[in-house]
Design a protein around this nucleic acid. Structure first.
Lengths: 227, 227
DNA sequence: TGTACATCAGTGAACGCGCGTTCACTGATGTAC
DNA sequence: TGTACATCAGTGAACGCGCGTTCACTGATGTAC
């Protein structure tokens, strides 16, 4: 085993860490040019390798992108888990998770795009989505970490609000929180979130929104009845 | 002027309505294959025309997609405006707007993808985003209808909750509502929203979430203070 | 310690393809007289 | 009513390009003896 010198270094005929280097390069290019603009040739060039070398480690382009997405879910789960185990009150930790989510989407747009870009035809990708197929009987799938980001969110909600949500499924609240986070993150990434001019930034937007969502569920179901 | 026979018909040498037909074809293919999978050749073929004919009506691919996005914002504004002027109480109309938004995203995925797909490099597209640059001094831009979807939302909030939001800018609430709607719509489009198994559908998800967001702002700022 | 060998990561050339765009052209249209 | 003509929408062939992928190969590696 040769000494590790960074993802894009190369010493001899054998790269030594090509798979990891390709994943990192893909992540970088997806961040810069979007998922559609990412190219195997670019990634291979950056890494200092022939495009054909890629096929020693991946079935093809799609498999590389899928691996990037998987790593993304993994990294996101790691960050959410870290926030969940940080200091402070449960509410503070919960708030920190929201910040961690937005920071992840902002700092790792390559990951984020690979994870959430719609795949029109084959939406049957199992194991990668943050939540399972919605079946309570299938809470843990084969892939170890793919669902855990969502699991962390559910866990955080349970710990932060141990009194529950008036009988409402905690996963329901979790989905709402996730959807709001995702909406803010993607609108921000697309440059469609207004900035300046007295309006709060996205972190404040998420914080206030999440608290409203949670308290709305806590305070009762008057809303539901008034339809 | 020849008789109009549908977007993809063709009678002679001249198409008669090529521009509209190309926009419709683009919308259809973006819906089916995603923005990246959409091709000028496909659109031209469907319409029954040589790819080169497109350049009589558009500067290029990008301009065609931009036109689709513009039409999308227009159609969305139309639907939101219709819901805003429908029967019932203000709250009912407001709820109907949310339903109209999700229905639009579901029924017109071509429009939606063209409107909101992130353009990594040139995020400086002005006039197309539903909200302006966030400058209150620039409430109405040159393009007549591009901002009106967001304007309808702000208007609906003002009418539905005339007492205001404890001094919070109504646009702030509007952005939160929009972000939640967008998050639900995109997660649903990506097949990452759980279905069945007792969890409510996306319409219920949005309804409950929006009411929580609004009431969270109405009920006070205890949340803000407890940071 | 030295040599033969199996393994397999990476090469380099080539492939078929389909893309967006250009250009000189052609032929339908409708208007001026 | 008929003819000449300007207009311009659409043609068809071609372009340069870069993509993902394949294939027989080569050369570095490390293990068995």
């Amino acid at each position: 085993m040769r000494h590790w010198r960074g993802p894009f270094d190369r010493q001899g005929y054998h790269h030594g860490n090509l798979k990891e280097a390709l994943i990192e390069a893909a992540q970088r290019f997806i961040a810069e040019r979007g998922l559609g603009g990412f190219t195997l040739a670019d990634a291979a060039k950056l890494v200092g390798v022939t495009p054909a070398a890629l096929y020693r480690h991946f079935r093809g382009r799609e498999a590389l992108v899928a691996e990037v997405a998987f790593r993304g879910f993994d990294e996101l789960a790691k960050r959410l888990g870290k926030a969940l185990q940080s200091d402070g009150t449960p509410l503070e930790r919960f708030t920190r998770m929201g910040e961690a989510y937005l920071a992840f989407a902002e700092q790792e747009p390559g990951f984020y795009a690979a994870m959430f870009s719609a795949k029109p035809h084959e939406a049957e990708n199992e194991g990668c989505a943050p939540w399972g197929k919605g079946a309570p009987d299938k809470t843990s799938t084969s892939s170890p970490r793919s669902n855990s980001a969502f699991d962390y969110l559910v866990e955080a909600l349970s710990k932060t609000f141990p009194e529950g949500f008036q009988g409402v499924d905690t996963r329901f609240i979790a989905i709402e929180v996730w959807a709001l986070s995702h909406g803010i993150a993607t609108l921000d990434a697309a440059g469609q979130l207004p900035k300046g001019s007295g309006l709060p930034d996205k972190y404040e937007l998420l914080r206030a929104g999440v608290l409203a969502l949670v308290h709305g569920a806590l305070k009762g179901k008057a809303a539901s009845a008034s339809r």
